[in-house]
Design a protein around this nucleic acid. Sequence first.
DNA 1: AGAGACATGTAAGTTGTTACATGATTTG
DNA 2: CAAATCATGTAACAACTTACATGTCTCT
Lengths: 179, 179
Amino acid sequence: MPKPRILPNVILGLLDNHPNMSGRDIENEFQTEIGEFWQASHSQIYPELKRMLTDGWIEIATERVDEDAKVIRYDITIAGHDHLLAWLHEPITAENDALSSLKLYFIHDRHSPTLAKILRTQVELHTKKLSHLRQRQQQLFSKDAQIDRQYGHFLILTRAIEREENNVDWLQRTLAGSK
Amino acid sequence: MPKPRILPNVILGLLDNHPNMSGRDIENEFQTEIGEFWQASHSQIYPELKRMLTDGWIEIATERVDEDAKVIRYDITIAGHDHLLAWLHEPITAENDALSSLKLYFIHDRHSPTLAKILRTQVELHTKKLSHLRQRQQQLFSKDAQIDRQYGHFLILTRAIEREENNVDWLQRTLAGSK
DNA sequence: AGAGACATGTAAGTTGTTACATGATTTG
DNA sequence: CAAATCATGTAACAACTTACATGTCTCT
C-alpha cells in the first residue's frame, strides 16, 4: 500500500475553515499559520487542487467578489468534507502521531469528542515513549564514564526525556481543563 | 543549488564513532539509536555507501574478524572525517536547526567548542522563536471569543509556546552546566 | 511606464518509499 | 530440513524541490 497522502487533507482542512480560497491563499496559510507543522510549495499545491477538483472533493467557487480574472477560488464539497472528517477520525498510532498537532488545528469546537480522543491517545502514546526513553537512559548512562564517552548522545536523550515530560504534562492539563 | 544531503553525513558520524560497520549495522542504528531524529531504509543506505566509497569518504575494512562472506564492513577515511567535521561546523540557521540534535549526537567530548557553539546558537534561535510565538498568540487570541472560534489552533499554539519555553530553559541549564 | 508583488502553471531532477529478489546463516 | 533472520541489492513509483515561464495587477 502506498503511503497515505497528507497534503489533500490539509487543503481540505483549510478550505473547511475558510471558504473561497485561492491557491495563493492556501500557500500563504502554509507559510504563516501551519508552517510549523506542514509545508508545501505552490508547485505542489496547484496540481493538487486540480486533482482534488476531478476527485470531487472541492469545486470552483461561483461567487466572484473580486474581478481579478486569473484568480481561481475553491470551496469544499460535501464529499470533501466527509473525507476530511474520516481523516480526522483515523486512529492515531505511534507511526502517524506527528499528524496529531496538524489534526488539532482543524478542530474548532472546544467540546469535540474527536479532540478529546486525540488528546487521550496522545497521553497514552507519549507516556509509553517517555518510559521507554527513561529505560534507555538507565541502560546507556547509568555510569558517569558512559556519559563522558558519549556526551552528545547523553544530552539529546536527556533533552528528549524532558520534552516528553513536558508534553505529557501539558496533555493532561489540557484534558483536565476541557471537562 | 541542490538541497544539501544529510544521509552521508549521518553515516560518517556513525562510522566515526564505531569503525568496522556493515550496511546492516548502520540500518540498525537508524532504527534504534538515532531513529528519533533521522531514518533511512536499507535501499537508501546501500547505494549511498557505494557512492561514498567512490567519493573516498569511506573504505572497505580490511580486518575480517567474522568469516561471513557476504558482509561488507566499512571504515571512515581521513577525507571522510574532514567532511564530517566541516558539516558539524556549518553555521546553524533557523532553516537547518532541525539538524542540531542530530549533530550533537556525533559530538562525544563534553568540552568541545563546537558543542557549546551549537547550544549558544540554539538559545538565540529558540528565544526568538518563542517571542514570535507569544506575539502571535497575543494577535490571534487576546479575546476569549477568538479562542472558542479556533480552539484547536489555540491549543497547538499554546503547546508550541510551552515547548519552546521548556526548550530554551533546558538549553540555558545545559550551557551553564558545561562551564 | 517601470518595479515589484500577485497568481498560476510546468519541467527537470533528487530523494525516499515500497516492493521485488537472491543467497547465506542461524534456529527449532 | 524448514522457517526465520541476516545481508545485500535493484526496480518502480510517489513526493517534493528548484528552476523556468507567463501574464496580471498595483503602486509610485
